[in-house]
Nucleic acid binder design. Structure first.
Lengths: 345, 345
DNA sequence: CTGTTAGCGCTTTCAG
DNA sequence: CTGAAAGCGCTAACAG
């Protein structure tokens, strides 16, 4: 057996109450500075504070939670802990939560068959957490938590409350960036995966093309998985094309990196043979050879905003219908520049 | 105001007890299958089960925790959520915890001045969590938690219980891999940062050199930060060397990637001008041009093992002194091959 | 100014 | 076979 809880016996409110010869109620009051604590005599207060210090008193988290009906725990459910986006999201959520004393319970659903993840959420939902932030999984988890506790959705816009970035705007901007250079044969590498941010990205590309009056050639669109492996698939597709696009909008950095590295290995020049641009802008994008043009996604900020919205809800505010949209930034680098831009009239 | 808890009023043990006309004690027993539950009549049992189902009863997490003196929460404290290693660690910890119904509380200390992080840990320590897994921060957090709750250290070996990978072995193997090719002018890119895994990595390199009877030229050693930016520093250092090494052992993938990309941009050929090998082997390493030779670190597995050790401790086992060492795997790729290896006698 | 009381929702002896 | 009772550690009226 080990000896936790024996060496440094945790002291309770009762312990400090006994030590100063006062009741637990009084002690609780001064330690919490709760309503009415001004009427406690300065002497008693000092006595209590000193005793608490000396006994190294720490309030018992769970007891407090049970009584006050809030756990100070917010869960973040992520579909894929390995997505380069996820750590930034986590960082943002965590930092915002910590500002107000909340803790982050992470629910990594990467390896979780649906049923199990739902069961886990249900478990937590009852008295375990104060709220749930859901990344890209409203379909799977939305019905389960519906109305039972405060929720914020991340990376979606057709549910609420939510915070998302302008995914359509990202690919639209990227596409227009090519169009402005006079490039018309623009392909798109997207995914068959469902999350709304992905369908919106493809829509952004299509919208930009339509706006420019250029019919989309479906041959120039390829669907892969959002992993590095997807880049391999995209490369094979590209090599198989008889008529190559002059530029490619890629839906996510991961895929763009893998694709890029393989194109270069195969002797395809970027941007001379094919220009490239993608969405996310993780740190290494700027270091690629050539540096990769990206629509930068404010993932950290999204996490922060989601956490703030969560805490507002816990505080009682109704955020139904609220969808915060964060803008992306276009970071132009060498991978996408084939010619000087069309002169601005 | 929002309406959580109003629409779907949570039902308690009392609710289902009342519904079936039995006492909460009985209901608690059958629902937990606790000792003595066999003596409850089949009829009553069915009644209770049905009622619980119908009322959608979920045990109240915090109440249970308070009574049973365990929260089913294990915290993982990480020093840097952005390290490519971290998500794998998290994944491993989480998956292992979930197998036994535990949840993961993530403590991301990336942006946390020391004092604050310590305060947070202290807060949690009292009745908030059942145990704490500490990644690379025994110095900062060890004293704070000392003896107060079960701890497992990750990526360290001079504290216990711990799980770590053979960091010295990793760089030793890499260095020997070069030596076997007859390369003698081997440089090392390490870091001035403290974590034990980093000092051990440098030691592994030095040991291998010593073993081969080759004096280490201190000019051939460079210390940078373990971020992508460190790669830039390393590149500048390399360019400034009058006498270049033929091969470079790099202490972490991040730095190797950035260094590699900049070397290539500068026209330095890999491995012809300088061979490269590094520690970690994140997914993209195999896709680099040329593919990067790595010592693969079993991060996911480390997380899993740490979580298992944690749960064993929570179950009462004393793991003092136990340090589990996980082996690394050498993944040889083109970046490190300058000649065929010396013939094996 | 301070103590008493009554629980939060649950588990667990111990009596029937 | 089942229920009553005690209590985990804490908070919040309400009395003095």
């Amino acid at each position: 057996m080990n000896g936790y809880g024996q060496n440094e016996k945790k002291s309770t409110l009762k312990d400090v109450a006994r030590k100063v010869g006062r009741s637990v109620a009084t002690v609780s009051m001064v330690l919490n500075q709760s309503a009415g604590c001004e009427r406690i005599s300065e002497e008693t207060r000092q006595l209590i504070l000193a005793a608490a210090e000396e006994l190294n008193y720490q309030p018992h988290y769970m007891a407090q939670a049970l009584k006050k009906r809030n756990t100070m725990l917010v869960a973040l459910a992520v579909p894929n802990i390995y997505h380069p986006f996820t750590p930034q999201l986590i960082g943002g959520v965590q930092d915002a939560l910590r500002e107000r004393g909340y803790h982050l319970l992470l629910l990594d659903l990467t390896n979780s068959p649906d049923a199990e993840s739902v069961r886990t959420v249900l478990q937590l939902e009852s008295g375990g957490i104060d709220g749930l932030i859901i990344h890209s999984m409203s379909k799977e988890l939305g019905p389960v938590v519906d109305g039972k506790l405060p929720v914020v959705y991340l990376d979606e816009k057709s549910v609420s409350p939510a915070v998302w970035f302008d995914a359509g705007g990202a690919t639209r901007t990227l596409t227009q960036h090519f169009l402005q250079q006079g490039i018309q044969k623009i392909g798109y590498i997207g995914t068959f995966m469902e999350p709304e941010t992905y369908t919106e990205r493809e829509k952004g590309y299509r919208d930009a093309m339509a706006q420019a009056g250029i019919p989309v050639n479906e041959e120039m669109i390829c669907h892969v998985s959002p992993q590095l492996g997807g880049g391999g698939k995209a490369f094979a597709w590209f090599q198989g094309l008889k008529e190559k696009p002059e530029a490619l909008v890629v839906f996510t950095d991961n895929v763009a990196h893998a694709l890029m590295l393989q194109l270069i290995r195969a002797g395809v020049r970027i941007p001379e043979d094919v220009a490239l641009a993608s969405v996310d802008d993780v740190e290494i994008s700027a270091l690629m050879n050539p540096p990769l043009t990206c629509a930068w996604v404010p993932a950290y900020e999204m996490g922060k905003r989601a956490a703030y919205m969560m805490m507002e809800q816990i505080a009682g505010k109704d955020l139904t219908g609220v969808v915060e949209t964060l803008p992306v930034e276009l970071h132009i680098r060498a991978s996408s520049i084939r010619s000087s831009p069309a002169p601005n009239p």
